[in-house]
Design a protein around this nucleic acid. Structure first.
Lengths: 132, 132
DNA sequence: TTAGGTGCAAATGATTTGCAATAAT
DNA sequence: ATTATTGCAAATCATTTGCACCTAA
């Protein structure tokens, strides 16, 4: 059915399907994951196309790109500002909402039993020089 | 001269040189940057070796790996917990110390004139299940 | 109809690997 | 002497690109 989420993008079977897959994922997934999902469901989509769709979705704010120190990107439908806890052993990924790092780490340890070894935080934006 | 920073690692010319380069860098740099530095100084080090040295340093806590949503790693001598601001336009990287995200973003905007578009924060550690 | 989307095959960029030769302890 | 480290060349993994064809609007 017709969706208005695509903004100025055209609606195609491939896009519908990838969006569908991502909407069902509780955590960011990589391209291999998406492609194997597509194969399971007998959806034929070239991998170059998959990358192009993900790029288009990212640029239009439909999804967000993440990096988990794995040397590759992960993608997730944009659920607003939140973060993740990644288990360095089993690769469990769990959503973290709210914001206050030191407190967080303590809470994560107390409430979830996570042993937080480190975290990565980067800001992205435009510096003063580039705003003019 | 002999250095004790290497712990159980052997001290080699290549390691000394890479450590030297990283110690002089104010921000995390990528492998291309390191290799071109080596070339400038006529230091011959195979790129596979460079990667292996960086891996050894990382595993021994001498340096830290970062990702700036570029699809590659950056490396920095371990200066303890801190973060970075990356300009999406000119790729300026500036250190951020202290911790409190929302406040930070406002401070960054007020004090540095940075326009913060988004930030990435991930925690890494060991989940409860994996601790036992 | 026509600009935007896709497939295919090949290229690129980052990182890793096997194995033999070499150097640090 | 022993074992870690390095060089080399090739492999692998993630992602991108050019170009001709196709399709949603």
């Amino acid at each position: 059915m017709k969706s208005d989420i695509y903004l100025n993008l055209r609606q195609t079977k491939g896009r519908d399907k990838i969006l569908d897959i991502l909407q069902k994922e509780p955590v960011p997934v990589d391209v291999v994951h998406i492609i194997s999902h597509l194969e399971n469901e007998k959806v034929n989509l070239n991998q170059a196309t998959v990358y192009r769709i993900l790029e288009a979705f990212s640029k239009n704010g439909i999804i967000k790109r993440f990096e988990f120190l794995e040397g590759k990107f992960r993608y997730e439908v944009d659920k607003g500002d939140h973060h993740h806890f990644i288990c360095q052993i089993c690769n469990l990924v769990e959503d973290i909402s709210d914001c206050n790092i030191k407190e967080w780490e303590e809470e994560l340890e107390k409430e979830k039993g996570f042993l937080v070894k480190n975290h990565s935080l980067e800001f992205f934006g435009v510096c003063q020089k580039c705003q003019s």
